[in-house]
Amino acid sequence: MDKERQLQEDLVWNAGYRMNESLRMIKICVEQLSEKQVWEKPNESSNSIANLILHLCGNITQYGIASIQNLEDTRLRDAEFTTESGYTKKELMKKLEDTIDEAKRAFYEAPLEELLRKRHVQGFNFSGVGNIIHVTEHLSYHTGQIALWTKILQNKDLGFYGDVNLNVKNETKNI
């Protein structure tokens, strides 16, 4: 395998891994909340967990699917924040899971040329690689917000890494 293809596969695999981790954490949060709590806002200038999930679906679709696959951008960003009901917890999670799966598939299927091509999204000029990085970090950013709001609502540790020893030191040799 040539180095370019190896780098592409490693980038896509790692982005997918990080997206799966965020999805896993969001599921843990949503499972602990009531249908009412997922729509509850901490205050008027903040978003509910449901709104954040709708926002993530819109952002991932715009940057990670439509842009990478050269599809029409049909995102209605403002609706992601103004919607106040209409989805159950199960429907929200299914929508997020399906969106993440579709984005990972778009990343994997994109030829190297498409990952290097510059494109305009939301007024920004990024390559496909830039869009993958954006999708991954944006998902992670809002996962942290969802986790914080869940901790506030539940007043308990979420146990994201309960079965992992996070105090293990880095190994200095190559694996």
Rank of each mutant, 00 (worst) to 15 (best):
E102H: 13
M19V: 00
E97H: 03
L166Y: 12
E102Q: 15
E137M: 04
S45P: 05
C57V: 13
G128P: 03
R117F: 07
S46T: 12
T150V: 04
M19K: 03
L52H: 07
G123S: 04
R5K: 13
E4C: 01
L11Q: 09
Q8C: 11
K89G: 00
Q154S: 11
E72V: 09
K173G: 07
D163P: 03
L56G: 02
W39S: 03
F126I: 03
T136N: 15
S34M: 03
T74K: 15
R5S: 15
K118Y: 10
E44H: 02
P42I: 11
L7N: 10
N70P: 00
E35A: 15
Q62T: 04
Y161Q: 06
E40T: 00
T150M: 08
C57S: 13
K41V: 13
G130A: 09
Y161F: 12
M19A: 05
Q32P: 04
F81V: 02
K90R: 08
E91G: 02
T74H: 10
A15S: 09
L23M: 08
L54A: 09
L92E: 01
R105W: 10
N125G: 02
V38R: 01
T172Q: 15
H138L: 06
C29I: 04
F160S: 07
L54Y: 13
T74Q: 12
V121I: 10
I146C: 00
W13F: 12
I53Q: 01
G162F: 05
E102N: 14
N59S: 15
M1W: 10
T74D: 10
D2C: 02
F126Y: 14
A15I: 02
R77E: 09
L33P: 02
P111M: 09
L115N: 09
W39L: 03
Y63T: 01
K118T: 06
C29E: 11
A15V: 00
E137T: 04
Y141S: 07
G130E: 14
R18I: 04
L96R: 05
E72P: 14
L116V: 01
Y108E: 15
K151I: 03
M19I: 03
L148I: 00
L7V: 00
K89T: 02
N131P: 02
M19G: 04
Q145W: 06
Q32V: 02
N14Q: 14
E40A: 06
T136W: 10
E35N: 15
S127Q: 08
L148G: 03
Y63W: 15
F81E: 04
D98Q: 14
C29L: 05
L115P: 03
S45D: 13
E44Y: 03
E9C: 09
H134R: 07
L52N: 07
K36N: 14
I132Q: 11
D73Y: 05
D163W: 05
K94I: 01
Q145T: 05
T88E: 07
N131K: 01
E97L: 06
E80F: 01
M93T: 01
I49M: 01
I49E: 03
F160V: 06
K3W: 14
K169V: 06
E31D: 14
R24H: 11
S140I: 04
D163V: 01
E44F: 00
L33Y: 07
S48W: 00
T99D: 00
A79S: 08
K90M: 05
T136V: 08
G162S: 09
E35Y: 10
T82C: 03
W39P: 01
K173E: 08
N155S: 10
A66G: 12
N174V: 05
F126E: 13
K156N: 15
E21N: 10
